[in-house]
Design a protein around this nucleic acid. Sequence first.
DNA 1: TTCTAACCGAGACGGTACGTCCTGTCTTCGT
DNA 2: ACGAAGACAGGACGTACCGTCTCGGTTAGAA
Lengths: 195, 195, 195, 195
Amino acid sequence: MTQRPHTGSRRNEEAELAILRAAADLMASDAAPITVGAIAERAGVGKQTIYRWWPSKSAVLLDAMIRRAEEVAPDPDTGDLRADLRRFLRSTFGAAPDSRSLLVGVLREALGDAATMERLAAFAAARREALEQILDRARSRGQVSGSAPLETVVDQAFGLLWYRMIFGHRPLDERAADDLADVLAAQLGANRKGR
Amino acid sequence: MTQRPHTGSRRNEEAELAILRAAADLMASDAAPITVGAIAERAGVGKQTIYRWWPSKSAVLLDAMIRRAEEVAPDPDTGDLRADLRRFLRSTFGAAPDSRSLLVGVLREALGDAATMERLAAFAAARREALEQILDRARSRGQVSGSAPLETVVDQAFGLLWYRMIFGHRPLDERAADDLADVLAAQLGANRKGR
Amino acid sequence: MTQRPHTGSRRNEEAELAILRAAADLMASDAAPITVGAIAERAGVGKQTIYRWWPSKSAVLLDAMIRRAEEVAPDPDTGDLRADLRRFLRSTFGAAPDSRSLLVGVLREALGDAATMERLAAFAAARREALEQILDRARSRGQVSGSAPLETVVDQAFGLLWYRMIFGHRPLDERAADDLADVLAAQLGANRKGR
Amino acid sequence: MTQRPHTGSRRNEEAELAILRAAADLMASDAAPITVGAIAERAGVGKQTIYRWWPSKSAVLLDAMIRRAEEVAPDPDTGDLRADLRRFLRSTFGAAPDSRSLLVGVLREALGDAATMERLAAFAAARREALEQILDRARSRGQVSGSAPLETVVDQAFGLLWYRMIFGHRPLDERAADDLADVLAAQLGANRKGR
DNA sequence: TTCTAACCGAGACGGTACGTCCTGTCTTCGT
DNA sequence: ACGAAGACAGGACGTACCGTCTCGGTTAGAA
């Protein structure tokens, strides 16, 4: 059926990629029930090849998501906190609509599988760290004067992101990113007041 | 098996309660896969009795969650924005640890079932309205001066709540509630004082 | 998909019959690989319904075969050994061509599954007993004079049957039945004449 | 894993033998499901080495069996039919208990694979010819006078052998061989009486 | 008081997906 | 060139659940 050749007794990278791509595609097309068989078929791969390298369906979906998320990994450093936040949140939010069903699908799986949740939590932690780095830089520049705990700030940012992603009641567009960046910057640099 | 008597040709309220309680219990004990059969067995009920009154498994779980959530529905009105926020968030956060697996379980189901998601979203919207009411009251008292969109504020609050509930990387205790209340109050009334 | 109705919480006899019929049909049509899924589909039944009542695929096939074999269960009693043998073997051989693939399929499964073999052996033993009854009657009529062990006679008869059934190198027709009946009758009553 | 050295670019006879031996061993140990992987592992050989020399798993098993069967290939010629039959059947039956699971395993494979069945049938035909030779010699000596068709006699003999081998309900010992030899000799030499 | 209709516990049903196992093919790398 | 190793596509296995259906029994209220 498939034309892709074996690679012998070593892992077939092409097959791995095909699987991740198929998983991402299926999550993107929100035709709800993503089955392993469907992933395998779309990738032109035997189910066993999936289970050889991933412990469960959820793990595949997670990998597919992380792989995409890592393509958009900005770490802006403009010298200004508010500008940095705007850039970070804009790029983060900007990627969201496309990968919404991806993230949501993964979240769904993770909620039912501890191991997957662990990995998803690790991913979330990495994203938090990226944001914390921006805040740290601002602090070392003396741009942070407020008393707001950094963790609260960070969790507000990603919380709003996930919350809107899950419920979809409000857009995750550039305007939303800018609004959020502004209030967070204000929270941190409340002293600047004259503003 | 069960001692509960039939009620003849009328709906058996005890059975309904037993079902909701069983569903809540199963979600609380995070033994992952909640099956309809398991709920029925634990409630001492036939599966059909569940499907007679609810359209799907998810609907049962959702009902179980909402029922609990409504027990804690504070609408504080102290005359001071920060105090109101503290109370609201404290009571909201305070209920969270207990019903964490409940909410998370429902979320899981909702992510895989549009009808359930709709109902869950409605629940979330109701909670947002409760918070918006507090903010509206503060605005009519002239305590809100910032230009930040109220929707952003609301989503910051509930976003942080859900985000921490999902990933559990940080506690949802009174301190967290107060921290969040403070930064949000400051954000809304930043100009009040010359400060 | 299927129109056959449930029978509630009791076993559905129609489904059972449909399964056995489907199994027999599939074995009859020598389209080699008989899968449980295929039996289920042809019977308009879920796989689980098969596994609910039979422990393995082999058991289903065995049941299907036994059910058919029991439809042809002659026990002739003409008063003459050779005539009885001819009738018994004719009817036994006569059924063989039709159910050849049935028996052969079951044998195949039985050779790989101890429990099935046990049941098949029980079936074979029952057939031997039927033949032994004929011989016993003849002996009580004084028509058996040879000293050859009866077990050998019985195994010669069924041995030839199975041997030809398996290898198919020679027909199992009426002539074959008569030939065998004659030599066995002669072997048992060798003295009757001059001897 | 294996100590046997490669032989470079020439066929490794030791590997072939190891494969046949492993196959025979696995069939002897009636641990039911004989897989190609298991044979390869036990022989310390790659699966491909098996498929390089045999077209299918069944073919390997068949080879293993035939190899053993050919070690016992008697063609007695004592000048007396009954004595010849006794020898032939004694040696044939004598080999049976050892290779019972071997033959039965091969039969199992053959019943599911036409090509293997063809080869197994050829083997069975060769055995029949060996017996027919004995009978022919007896006829040319004028020791065969009965009207029993030779094919019927031959199929009774091997039929009883396979039948008992499959079902194991009665021993295949020397006594069984002698009993059978006697009745078959009687069937053929019915002339003994005036008849 | 008797009848009837809706409800109940129970669990079999058709169906979908799971994750495992095995076959026979293919490729790598070492001998 | 051949061997051991093992990844690969494919497909059947037997299990778990879903949501539907029927059974036989119970109870309430209408006749």
